[in-house]
C-alpha cells in the first residue's frame, strides 16, 4: 500500500470516529468541510480535468437543491427519488450551457462569463418564482431529529454527517477511476491542447460536454444534501455569485486537477473561516465579511507562492512521490 493510501486511510478513519469525541459544533463544521470537499471535487472534474472554467457552478447546486426540495414539499416525493430528478435537471442545464458555449467556440474566460450569466439569470428567475417561495425562500418541514430516515433524508445530524462522508468517499473513488480511464485521458488532453487532442482522434466537443454534464449532475447531488441538511433555500444563497466562488476556492487552494486538492483545500479553508469568525466574535466585535477577506488573502498567497496548490507542494515535502495519486 502506498503512503498516499495510508494517509487517506488515516484521514478517513479520523472522520469516521470523530462523532464519538467531537461536540455538535465541531461536527457541523466538519459537515461543511466535507460539503465543500464534495462540490469542489465535482467542480474539479470540469476545470481541473477538462480545463473548462465554470464560475457559475452554484447554478447546479441551486437547481439540484430546489428540484429535490420542491418535489418533497409540494408532492411529498422522498429525497431518494428526488435526487434523480435533481441530477437530471442539472445535467440538462449543463448540457445547454456547454452545448451553446462549445458549439459557438466560446473559450476560456468568455466561457466562464457565460457560466456566470446563466447562474445570475437563474437566480433572478427563482426570485420571481412564487410557487417556490421567491425571495421569501423555500422551507422544508423539519421532521423528527431522532430518526435515521435515509429515504426522506429526515433525521439526526449524525445521519447527514455520515451521508456527506459517504458522498466524499464515493466521488473520490469515482474521480480516481475516471482519471485512470480513457475518458480521463481524453479530458486531460483537451485541457492541455485542443488542436493536438483533435489530431489524436478525440472529439473535443463531446469530451467537454461530458465533463460539464457529469460535473453538473454530481454537483446537484451536493445541492440535494444542502437543501435537506439546512431545510431552507433562498435564491440569493442558492444561486449567488459568492457561493460559486466558495465552491471553487477549495480545489484551487488544494491543487487544481488533483484528487486530494479539493479535500485538502476544504480542510484548510473552512476551519480557517470558522476560526476567524469565532475569534472575532469572542473578542466581542462582529466583523461582517471577515471570512471572505481571509479567503481572499489565502487565495492571494496561494497564487503567489504555490500556484499549483498546496497538495502538489505537500506531496513533495512528505516524500509521497510524484506518481499518480491513489496508485
Amino acid at each position: 500500500m502506498s503512503r498516499q493510501a495510508i494517509l487517506l486511510g488515516l484521514l478517513l478513519a479520523a472522520f469516521v470516529v470523530a462523532p464519538a469525541f467531537a461536540g455538535p459544533y465541531l461536527l457541523s463544521v466538519m459537515v461543511v468541510v466535507m460539503y465543500f470537499a464534495y462540490v469542489g471535487q465535482a467542480w474539479n472534474i470540469m476545470m481541473g480535468f477538462a480545463g473548462q472554467l465554470s464560475l457559475g457552478h452554484t447554478i447546479y447546486v441551486g437547481l439540484g437543491a430546489y428540484t429535490a426540495a420542491a418535489l418533497f414539499v409540494h408532492f411529498g416525493i422522498p429525497a431518494i427519488f428526488g435526487l434523480f430528478a435533481a441530477a437530471a435537471v442539472a445535467v440538462a442545464a449543463g448540457s445547454i450551457i456547454g452545448a451553446l458555449g462549445f458549439r459557438f467556440g466560446v473559450k476560456g474566460v468568455y466561457f466562464a462569463l457565460l457560466t456566470i450569466a446563466f447562474a445570475e439569470f437563474t437566480r433572478i428567475l427563482f426570485e420571481h418564482f412564487t410557487a417556490l417561495g421567491g425571495t421569501g425562500g423555500l422551507f422544508l418541514p423539519v421532521g423528527s431529529r431522532d430518526s435515521f430516515d435515509l429515504i426522506h433524508l429526515r433525521g439526526h445530524p449524525l445521519m447527514f454527517y455520515y451521508l456527506i462522508l459517504a458522498m466524499c468517499v464515493g466521488i473520490f473513488l469515482l474521480c480516481r477511476k475516471l482519471l485512470n480511464s480513457r475518458l480521463g485521458y481524453t479530458w486531460l488532453a483537451v485541457r492541455e491542447d485542443q488542436d493536438a487532442a483533435a489530431a489524436l482522434g478525440i472529439n473535443v466537443f463531446r469530451a467537454k460536454l461530458t465533463a460539464v454534464m457529469l460535473s453538473a449532475g454530481l454537483t446537484a447531488l451536493g445541492g440535494v444534501f444542502f437543501a435537506f441538511y439546512y431545510n431552507n433555500l433562498f435564491p440569493n444563497q442558492a444561486f449567488g455569485m459568492n457561493r460559486s466562488i466558495e465552491i471553487i476556492l477549495a480545489p484551487i487552494v488544494g491543487g487544481l486537477g488533483t484528487l486530494f486538492g479539493p479535500i485538502l483545500g476544504a480542510l484548510i479553508l473552512t476551519p480557517l473561516g470558522e476560526g476567524i469568525t469565532a475569534a472575532t466574535e469572542a473578542m466581542g466585535f462582529k466583523a461582517a465579511g471577515i471570512k471572505q477577506l481571509c479567503y481572499g488573502l489565502s487565495l492571494l498567497a496561494i497564487v503567489k507562492f504555490l500556484p499549483e496548490g498546496v497538495w502538489p507542494w505537500l506531496r513533495l515535502r512528505l516524500g509521497l512521490g510524484d506518481g499518480e495519486e491513489g496508485e
Binding site: 486531460l188 488532453a189 492541455e192 491542447d193 488542436d195 487532442a197 483533435a198 489530431a199 482522434g201
Partner: peptide
Amino acid sequence: LRPDQVCRAGVGRTFQLVKPFGNLSVEE
C-alpha cells in the same frame, strides 16, 4: 470531416509548431 474524424479514418499528423500536452508525462 473534423480533425478527430480524419484521425480515426487512419491519418496521423504532427504539428510544425509542436503542441505537447505540457503538464502530462511523455508517456501519458
